[in-house]
Design a protein around this nucleic acid. Structure first.
Lengths: 250, 250
DNA sequence: TGCGTTTCTCAGGAAAATCACAGATTTCCG
DNA sequence: CGGAAATCTGTGATTTTCCTGAGAAACGCA
């Protein structure tokens, strides 16, 4: 199936659509309600259609009739092993890409071989930006074989490549740390739109982050040094509201 | 049949296509479900169309109607000998190339005779990179005999010949061990793209590897000594994300 | 069998990234 | 202009991630 990119979202964001123009469908499987709720909300915000399940049984059943374009699957389910669920899912939907959720320390053993099939995983606790980015990648790549990968975000003379993790402004390469990269990606995916510190914290930092809220200020400061240094600034503060990024020209 | 190479895959990777533009078809035959699953997933990711069978009977039957462009065949099947299956397959598809899967300790001379006919084999446990590479080779050669050049990967002044296993940078030959070669091949097949340690491990090491994840770091270190030694580095670390290779120029 | 090569584990150390804290600076508003 | 609130940023502690030397074990080959 070929997914297309359009910029017709009400937010003015780029979003993925199925060939018939209907929204992408994602199935979320996790036994913790708080996680499925969190993910459902974040993914709906992407304009996707979400269905969720709390166990393997439900997952297989829902998948059969919902026919999702991608699945987010917790490896630790009450009724069956993540791999068993995967097997059943694959029987009905042979090509559906799967994003696994796994505990930080359980990573190495059972994930073996899974990323080789084009699937991917994130460790708990994750950040929503990470999940969304990985899902977008999976969905994009699962599409028919003949489309250019549109993995580059552009705002003014600033570009960010999600595949190579390369960032450059006015042609000049810029090195960013992992957190800086995710923050900039979030900003660039929402250009000209004010994002509150709370929103940023919720999206870019993992859901169990317990630190001081001013990390956002700190990382905005880091980004400015690297992105805006000496140039016309692109990152702006809206005092009392948040931050936004926009092309330097306007 | 002549297969053509295009670079239009969503990953920006080179991929094989049949003359009519339809995907290459591969039949996977193994009695262990986990193996057929693993291979199916990995080969689908190459953009190929996969069908699998769990025994000789099913293999012959599936082959008859699926008409694959290549077959991956475990020599150890429950119902019939690998040779018998081969014979039957050849009756319907005289020219289809076969990649044999064999146990490490299996008698090699039996295989040796078979591979003389343009077939090939890998021993279990295998790495996916190896299987994919061999299959690509078989399919390519079964098509037209005269597109040797396609077996050379080039990134900047670094070249790697998948047929002769020769590697050179700036014209200077470099000796690599088997593992180093496979790692470099994987990197070079995905230039300018960040590959996580998990992806690399899943692809380059055999599916039953149970060791420490830092072998990847170790072999990256080895490669750097040989590839980047003294020169402008081509292998880059994206801390917290993975590694990527790109031409020294940019 | 014996020797050189290759693969891999282990562990120390270096480097980088993350973040808390607090003082400096800016903005807003009366 | 003055003060309060909000934001910015320098410093350094802590944690995470990565690199690589040394050596053990497995392998390949004569």
């Amino acid at each position: 199936m070929v997914f297309t990119m359009t910029t017709t979202s009400p937010q003015g964001r780029t979003e993925l659509l199925r060939p018939d123009g209907s929204p992408v469908r994602v199935l979320v499987v996790d036994d913790e309600l708080s996680i499925t709720e969190l993910l459902s909300m974040a993914l709906r915000y992407e304009g996707w259609q979400i269905r969720s399940a709390g166990d393997g049984q439900g997952a297989v059943q829902t998948a059969r009739e919902f026919r999702p374009d991608a699945v987010v699957l917790d490896m630790m389910l009450p009724d069956m092993d993540g791999l068993a669920v995967l097997g059943r899912l694959r029987r009905d939907l042979p090509d559906v890409p799967v994003l696994f959720l796994t505990a930080k320390d359980a990573v190495e053993d059972r994930i073996a071989g899974l990323t080789a099939g084009g699937d991917d995983y994130v460790t708990k606790p994750f950040s929503l930006e990470e999940v969304v980015a990985r899902l977008r990648g999976l969905i994009r790549r699962s599409g028919a074989a003949d489309r250019r990968s549109d993995s580059v975000l552009v705002v003014g003379d600033l570009t960010l490549d999600e595949d190579s993790h390369e960032v450059s402004r006015a042609g000049e390469g810029i090195h960013l740390t992992a957190t800086e990269f995710e923050l900039l990606r979030f900003l660039m995916r929402n250009p000209r739109r004010v994002l509150s510190k709370a929103q940023i914290l919720d999206r870019v930092w993992s859901y169990d982050f317990g630190g001081q809220a001013n990390v956002v200020e700190l990382y905005i400061s880091y980004l400015r040094r690297k992105i805006d240094a000496g140039r016309e600034p692109m990152i702006h503060t809206r005092r009392g509201a948040g931050y936004l990024i926009k092309p330097a020209a306007s």
